[in-house]
């Protein structure tokens, strides 16, 4: 494991103390700070998928390539493969009321851009990905909600879970 002269949030710290050769006039002492930086992985949900207000009888769609898409960033080992799977809610809930959500869309890229990457359909099936040469991967998720004309008012929520297997 590489030793670097740095202080880090994720580290094991070892300290060594040694005295320099004594001179006639001055005694000096040195300490060496050593920090072992471990290779981490970081999976972050950066932006929820927020449809805001929708209208009864009017479908609302946020594409995976839209600015409002849900987004994840993943950082890990350069060029390593990683497997992505999704747990998706079939409906959103507001108390006892439900709202159908579906037509999921996904997009992943090795840079934080919704252009030049790979489109996929988020599901429990595996979506293979690969970290970039700098160890980055970005994933975007969109969906369509279909409120019927008699959909009760309320705040409808649910959860999308991204599982990254390293």
């Amino acid at each position: 494991m590489r030793i670097v002269p740095a202080v880090s949030a994720v580290m094991a710290l070892g300290l060594s103390l040694g005295a320099s050769t004594a001179s006639a006039q001055t005694n000096t002492a040195n300490i060496t700070a050593r920090a072992v930086v471990q290779a981490p992985i970081n999976v972050t949900a950066n932006q929820n998928l927020d449809f805001g207000n929708v209208f009864p009888g009017v479908n609302a769609t946020i594409a995976a390539t839209a600015a409002a898409a849900g987004s994840f960033s993943i950082t890990g080992q350069a060029s390593a493969p990683a497997k992505m799977t999704f747990t998706l809610p079939p409906t959103l809930a507001s108390g006892v009321n439900t709202l159908t959500i579906g037509t999921w869309t996904g997009y992943w890229n090795t840079i934080n851009s919704q252009v030049g990457g790979t489109a996929f359909i988020p599901s429990a099936a595996v979506t293979p990905g690969t970290f970039s040469a700098t160890g980055n991967m970005f994933t975007f998720v969109g969906a369509t909600v279909t409120p019927p004309s008699n959909q009760p008012a309320g705040t409808y929520t649910g959860s999308v879970t991204l599982t990254v297997t390293y």
Binding site: T44, Q47, G70, V145, A153, T155, T157, T161, T163
Partner: peptide, 28 residues
């Protein structure tokens, strides 16, 4: 890793507001 409650923009209790939390799971 799971965050707190979803925050839906511009909540109006007389309308239909929709939002999804994103959660992450890492397997090592």
């Amino acid at each position: 890793a799971k965050g707190g409650a979803v925050a839906v923009a511009g909540i109006d209790t007389t309308k239909i507001n929709v939002g999804l939390n994103l959660e992450v799971r890492t397997i090592l």
